[in-house]
Structures are given as structure tokens and as C-alpha cells.
Amino acid sequence: MFPFIAKRTATLVAAVLVSSFAVFLIPYFTPGDPVRTIIRSRVSGNIIDDADVQALSLSLGLQDPLIVQYFSWLGRIATGDMGLSHVSRTPVADQVLPALAVTLSLVAAALALAVLVSLPLGIVAGLRHGKPADRVITSVTQSFIAMPEYWVAPLLVLVFALKLSVLPSAGWSGPESMVLPALTLALRPISYFTSAVRAGMIDAAAAEHVPAARARGLSVPQAVLRHVIPNGLVPLSTLVAVWFAGLLGGSVIVEVIFAVPGMGRLLFDAVVNSDIPLAQGGVVLVVALAVLVTTLADFVHRALTPAVEGSYA
């Protein structure tokens, strides 16, 4: 276990360093002089004094070697100083953290919904594997993979907000405004979760200890409850974590459509407005968090399934 943790932690650190370096380089690749952009965002009026440009370049440390600039930038990000947004002229950290909180609650709601729906569906499909119930559940949930979110969302809005007027069409003002975005976001995870639970059930039911338990005198429901279902759920734990990481920044479409003030929308707005400090702060945070969550999930998975040890993982 220990070498595994050490290796994964090293990967985690390397991934954060490489991705943040790529993010750090954004202003060096984009057209326009970033120093002038910063000055323009701070003063009103179009005339920029060359002396100001030089003074700011100097104070930003732009004459230092690239690697020195990178580490001082990373140090500032790590201590919460992500610079000022070009658009709102407020600190990036003050925008990123509330957005992250919104996205976390949206993603948590969507995944909770997905688990609630796919657990019973997957269990039924797995236990009645090959029967009509399995066929219906599998084909319906599999078709969710092919549904674009930007198609489902407007249709849900059309039905529930415009025609029935039972739910708000957009915004973020209470639990009812969370229903449609969470539902849209949950469709694809439902599909993958159901298929994972189903496969887990089929594998677990085929294991030798199940007939052994039956031979010991356990009834079928007892054997299923104690031996099939718990073992069948192991694959789900990793999958939920992977999706949690993925949806942190993968909810862009849903957040844009439903005007949810979360991370996805923030990143999208930052890109559309060329607000580089905001995009940098947001991307670094999302990537670091996503990699951290999946690494932790690997640890948990390792602890739950000791058999993985030694083999490739």
C-alpha cells in the first residue's frame, strides 16, 4: 500500500505542476500584450503611458527567467492570491470560491440523484440478467449516453418551465432551481452507474461463495442481500468519484443553459471575455481538485479491494 500511495502522490504533484505550467503560459500565447491589458483594466481612458508599461513589467517581474516567474506565480496562487479579474476588477479568488461552492452542490445533487436511480435499476437488471426487465432497463439507460445535454436541457425547460410552469427555467435561487440542472446532469452518470452496478451484480452472483452461502442454509434473499449486493457495489464507488471529478468542470453546458453561477459558467465567461487571470485561477483549481479526487478514490478503491495489490493498477 505505501509504495502505491507514494507513487500516486508523486503523479498528483507532477500533474498539478505540468497543468499549472500550461495554464501559466496562456498569456504568452494569446495575442496582445498582457501588461497593456492589465493597465487598460485598471485605468479609464485609452491612452497608455509607456513609462507605466515599463514600471508594471518591472513590478510583475517580467524581466526574470520564465521558470522564476512561474514559481512566484504558483506561490501566489497557492496562497490564494490569484490576481485581479480583467473584467470585474475584483480578486479572482473572491469569484472562484463561491462558484466552486455552487458547482459542488449542483454536482453532489446530480450524483446523489444518479446513484438513487441507478442502484435499484442496476440491481434489478443484474439479478434478472437477460430477462425482459434487464433488456428494458439496459436499453433505456444506455440511450442516455447518446443524449446531448444541450438538447435535453431546453426540452426540460420547454416542458417544466414554459408549458407546465412548475419549475424555474434558469437561475440559482433555491432548491427548486436546482432540479432541472441536476436532472440534466444526472442522465449520463445514470447510464454508466446502472451498467456498472448491473455488471457488478452479475459478477458477484457468479462468485463461488454464493452457492456456498446457500448451502449453509441462507435463503435466496438473504444470500443476495449479504453476498451479492455488497460485492456488486464496489465498482460503483470509483465510478462516482471519477464522475465527481469530471463534472466539476464538465458542467459547463448545463451551467450556461440554466444560468447557474458555478465553475463551468465562470470558466466559459472567462474564455469568452478573454479574462485571463480568471481563466487561469479557475482551470488550476478545477484540475487540481479533479486529480486530487480521483487519486483519493484510487486509495479508497485499493483499500476496498486488496486483490488489486501487486497487479497493475
Binding site: 497543468s19 495554464v23 496562456i26 471519477v242 470558466l267
Partner: peptide
């Protein structure tokens, strides 16, 4: 695999 595809896409569009 851990990094959201959309974030990478946004990053590339932001840069290029």
C-alpha cells in the same frame, strides 16, 4: 482521464 474534457477545450480555445 481525471481532467474534464470541456475544461481542456476551454483552455485551448482561450489560448489559440
Amino acid at each position: 482521464l481525471a481532467v474534464p474534457e470541456m475544461v481542456v477545450a476551454l483552455f485551448i480555445v482561450a489560448t489559440l
